[in-house]
């Protein structure tokens, strides 16, 4: 995964709450077996409606998505993260995220940053008023900076380290192979096993 440290770009204000992953990438797109090419499907249904914010020329090329409360609820589809990234987003900001979406985003190198509702509102209002506003997402300093303002955010230390260094967490886990083996020897024999394939 690509490391993420600091990113600066323009932002899209998506003023909707409870944006579920079915909206981020509709299920019809989930038939694909690849990891790439999902950008076309991002918000596919909403993008059919004229004037949808993502398609306004003023926001073309924006790389930070600012969502309403409770972003990324519902389905576990990691395709939602792939679609956001493929479309060009490098970070997502909201006041709350669906747990699985947030996990997926961090596995894929897309920071999902939670700030207070009032801070989201202020940021959203700023980029609505002036789409040219540059937003800096700084994971090193744990701040979001725009238009002379600076907003701090909390972030899980371990996840932050992984994002900053772009570490492959499977490789990290496999270093503990001996511990896994030891655990396996302690499992009760009556635990179920799947019949052979």
């Amino acid at each position: 995964m690509e490391p993420f440290t600091v990113h600066t770009g323009r932002a899209v204000p998506l003023r909707r709450s409870d944006v579920d992953t079915d909206q981020i990438i509709p299920s019809d797109w989930l038939k694909r077996v690849e990891r790439t090419g999902f950008g076309m499907g991002l918000f596919a249904e909403w993008r059919r409606q004229p004037g949808f914010v993502l398609d306004l020329p003023a926001y073309a090329g924006a790389t930070v998505l600012v969502g309403g409360e409770n972003f990324g609820t519902g389905s576990s589809r990691e395709h939602a993260v792939w679609a956001l990234q493929d479309f060009g987003f490098r970070a997502v900001i909201s006041s709350r995220f669906g747990d699985i979406f947030r996990n997926n985003a961090h596995k894929g190198g897309l920071p999902a940053i939670a700030i207070d509702t009032t801070d989201v509102e202020a940021l959203m209002t700023a980029v609505e008023a002036d789409p040219a506003v540059e937003v800096t997402v700084d994971l090193v300093a744990q701040t979001i900076r725009y238009a002379g303002r600076s907003v701090g955010f909390d972030f899980d230390d371990y996840t932050r380290e992984c994002l900053l260094s772009g570490l492959d967490d499977i490789a990290l886990t496999l270093r503990h192979d001996a511990a896994i083996e030891q655990y396996e020897r302690s499992r009760p024999a009556w635990l179920p096993a799947v019949e052979a394939g």
Partner: peptide, 8 residues
């Protein structure tokens, strides 16, 4: 879980 975790 997501697909990255499935792989994990």
């Amino acid at each position: 879980i997501g697909t990255s975790e499935v792989e994990h």
